[in-house]
Design a protein around this nucleic acid. Structure first.
Length: 247
DNA sequence: GGTTATGTTATTTC
DNA sequence: AGAAATAACATAAC
């Protein structure tokens, strides 16, 4: 479920509830006073990276699907309900996820344009932030939500493959032009996946992530846990260049 | 039954 | 104290 484009898509699915009053709020999520939510009018739905926010006048309900999160709109799943909101137009239910209540002014905690899908995402600003840690591996940097909110392990692998960059390349050794292209490709691929969701193309068509053979070189992808902390990387030893210091 | 996994955060360790 | 490693959590598929 949980990379940025999926969350924007979910936001769009839930948009019919905006402007409606919560008829019932329930679930097992700790730290949420469901009494406080009942009767409130949903003002807006926002996303930041992989986080989804149901915005009310004095607070927001934040949902993060983590690894195994599930949701159902106008239906129920056979699991422990974490958060369920019932409106006149229907209901939305969340399971196996992290749900929290954030008190106003909660929006100040987020640097919204850091989200690669935000209209104001600024590739140059991202490049500046990226270069502050020149010694880290690019596979780690791409997953850093303070740099590229919304990028998950799938997008990470895919964009590195597309740009022909080895995951264990050191940020400071990659030419700035390549980094710029990588950042723009990350933004573009996220938008492309969102557009695919909007057109009902269920699953994303991965070229590298979870794939066996490099479609360019017809050789097996290497699969390894790289980075700190280790995360699965799928990459081609032939076409993805590794940038490392000479010595 | 064991391993793996679209992710983050709390706790422990150095 | 603070950085870094480890554990924890939830769930389905192979």
């Amino acid at each position: 479920m949980p990379e940025g484009p999926e969350m924007v898509f979910l936001k769009e699915l839930a948009e019919p509830f905006v402007g409606q009053q919560v008829w019932e709020a329930r679930g097992e999520a700790k730290g949420i006073s469901f009494d406080r939510v009942k009767g409130q009018v949903l003002q807006d739905i926002k996303t930041f990276g992989k986080e989804l926010f149901f915005c009310f006048p004095d607070f927001a309900l934040r949902v993060h699907l983590m690894l195994f999160g599930k949701y159902s709109i106008n239906g129920e799943l056979n699991r422990v309900l974490q958060l369920g909101l019932v409106f006149e137009a229907g209901e939305i239910n969340f399971y196996a996820c992290d749900c929290r209540l954030l008190n106003a002014p909660w929006e100040d905690q987020y640097d919204w344009p850091t989200d690669v899908l935000h209209p104001a995402f600024d590739p140059e600003k991202a490049l500046g932030k990226l270069l502050r840690s020149p010694g880290r591996f690019i596979c780690d940097a791409l997953l850093d939500q303070t740099l590229f909110a919304g990028v998950g392990n799938g997008l990470k692998n895919e964009v590195l493959f597309r740009q022909r960059i080895h995951p264990e390349s050191q940020v400071g050794e990659i030419p700035a032009s390549e980094l710029r292209a990588l950042i723009k490709a990350t933004q573009a691929l996220s938008a492309e996946y969102l557009e695919g969701k909007r057109h009902g193309e269920g699953e994303v068509h991965w070229q590298a992530y979870r794939q066996k053979i490099c479609p360019r070189d017809r050789v097996p992808f290497l699969k390894a846990k790289l980075g700190k902390p280790p995360r699965s990387c799928y990459f081609c030893a032939l076409c993805q260049r590794q940038y490392l210091p000479d010595w």
